[in-house]
């Protein structure tokens, strides 16, 4: 990948070797879980062909075996293109979008006893936040874009295609649900 050229200059957040190893271990765990559940279902070749767990069992087995090879290769530092998995600055960029996105989905869904706000209001907030924070747009522009985009979505999904999306207190107050 092209970004690898200037990466050594920046501080690395996590090395590719470690990440590669961690992912391989996760694959191994997943494979083991699949194997375990398959034996519960019956993983043998029954009288009339394979049982429910037959294929998943072998999928799990192959997954585990391949994961071990990958873990060893990671440990030995094979197929590593860049020593750094991600630099601190790049990771910051990624999180600057990933965290708001997680927050956005939390707003839609609600947390525990707090009910969600539905799909539309969080979408306005999300787009607006991006535009103000990352794009440094003025408020007027921001609100115009974010609200009109979401209104278009509303018309398209709720009115034209009749696909109900989650709605919150605002829509209820407006009588739109």
């Amino acid at each position: 990948m092209s970004q690898s050229e200037n990466e050594p200059l920046e501080k690395s957040a996590v090395s590719t070797k470690v990440m590669d190893f961690v992912v391989a271990v996760m694959f191994f765990v997943l494979g083991a879980v699949v194997m375990w559940d398959s034996t519960r279902l019956g993983a043998k070749w029954g009288s009339d062909g394979p049982e429910a767990g037959y294929f998943p069992f072998y999928i799990g087995t192959i997954l585990c075996a391949a994961a071990i090879v990958n873990a060893v290769r990671a440990f030995l530092g094979k197929d590593i293109k860049a020593p750094s998995f991600v630099s601190v600055s790049a990771l910051k960029m990624v999180f600057s979008v990933l965290l708001p996105t997680i927050f956005y989905v939390l707003l839609i869904d609600g947390v525990g006893p707090i009910p969600g706000l539905g799909m539309y209001v969080p979408s306005v907030i999300f787009i607006a936040a991006f535009m103000v924070w990352l794009g440094k747009y003025k408020w007027l522009m921001t609100l115009t874009v974010s609200i009109s985009v979401v209104v278009v979505f509303f018309l398209m999904f709720e009115i034209w295609f009749k696909v109900p999306l989650p709605k919150g207190p605002l829509e209820a107050a407006l009588g739109l649900n």
Partner: peptide, 14 residues
């Protein structure tokens, strides 16, 4: 149809 639907939903709210 679109307009009537919007109108309908407002009427509905009322």
């Amino acid at each position: 149809t679109l307009l009537t639907t919007i109108a309908a939903s407002i009427a509905c709210a009322l």
